[in-house]
């Protein structure tokens, strides 16, 4: 497939995305609040994730924020740990920890670091940040649930750049072998990794076919369309004998017009007060 066609394939599903509603804007404002507190963060990587996490935490996952270690809960791993601003926003929103923690993002004595730490943050199952670790761990959690006859499900969100890692495909092969229908691999396919376009750095296409060939039941969605996401997640597992893969076509920096699709916003440090004001303005209802 020619490069331009591949890019078009990646963007056509997001072109019809409805405008962000108030809840999506509010969650993004929480992301900016933490970003402002820390003066830095992987903004673009977090903003492509918001609707995926919203669909998971609002309508899909079984959890009790008052008992983060409840054995019967579903397990969620943000394998692309650098997208943690989005995870912190939704966990704070759900009451896993006080909202006041958000402004202490990356502070010396805060619990919210630049990558999520399971030892510090209630609701974080695994410490991630080194890429390619979430799916193998999720596979182990899914096997544990099966052995213990729990109906807990496991969801792992990976970045598109992240799945360059070989360990992802080792785990994919293994999950397929074990027919782990309680495991769902979700790819935040925003088409941009740190250096530039995934199509140029390390092309992933044909991505759905790759997951399919590793034994997954695959579905592709617009990762910013709540109805599409909820329909997809509520229909899991897509096959009673296979793990599921959901490829979410997303926009890096979604919701901030000048950050959308811009590698410059993958990670930002030394955010100025003026930039923060501008970011909030973009997210007004």
């Amino acid at each position: 497939m020619p490069l331009e066609a591949r890019q078009a394939h990646g963007s056509h599903t997001t072109a019809k995305t409805p405008n962000l509603d108030e809840r999506s804007l509010a969650l993004r404002r929480l992301v900016i609040k933490a970003l402002e507190g820390g003066g830095r963060g992987h903004l673009g990587s977090a903003l492509s994730l918001i609707e995926i996490l919203r669909a998971l935490y609002d309508d899909t996952l079984r959890f009790d924020s008052a008992r983060p270690d409840w054995p019967e809960r579903d397990r969620f791993i943000l394998s692309k740990g650098h997208g943690c601003l989005a995870l912190y926003a939704i966990l704070a929103d759900k009451g896993f920890f006080p909202m006041a923690e958000l402004v202490k993002f990356c502070h010396f004595d805060g619990i919210l670091g630049g990558h999520p730490d399971a030892g510090k943050v209630p609701g974080v199952e695994a410490s991630t940040g080194a890429l390619g670790h979430g799916l193998p761990i999720g596979l182990g959690l899914a096997l544990a649930a099966r052995l213990q006859k729990r109906d807990s499900r496991v969801f792992v969100v990976m970045g598109d750049g992240e799945i360059n890692e070989g360990s992802v495909w080792e785990a994919a092969m293994c999950a397929g072998k074990h027919n782990l229908s309680n495991l769902t691999a979700i790819v935040d396919y925003n088409k941009l990794q740190s250096y530039g376009r995934t199509a140029e750095v390390q092309d992933l296409e044909p991505l759905a076919d790759k997951w399919r060939s590793f034994g997954f039941a695959v579905h592709e969605v617009d990762g910013h369309d709540m109805a599409d996401l909820n329909r997809t997640f509520s229909a899991l597992p897509r096959d009673p004998n296979r793990p599921s893969a959901v490829i979410c076509h997303t926009v890096k920096g979604k919701g901030i017009s000048y950050a959308e699709g811009s590698p410059a916003w993958h990670h930002k440090s030394k955010i100025s007060d003026e930039e923060v004001v501008a970011l909030y303005k973009e997210l007004e209802a």
Partner: peptide, 26 residues
Amino acid sequence: PDRFFMEGVSEANIIGMAAGLAMDGF
């Protein structure tokens, strides 16, 4: 058989998988 795993030449995956199992009590 349920507790015996032979997962092929994939050490990175095997360690992560072991971690996941250990997180839930194994």
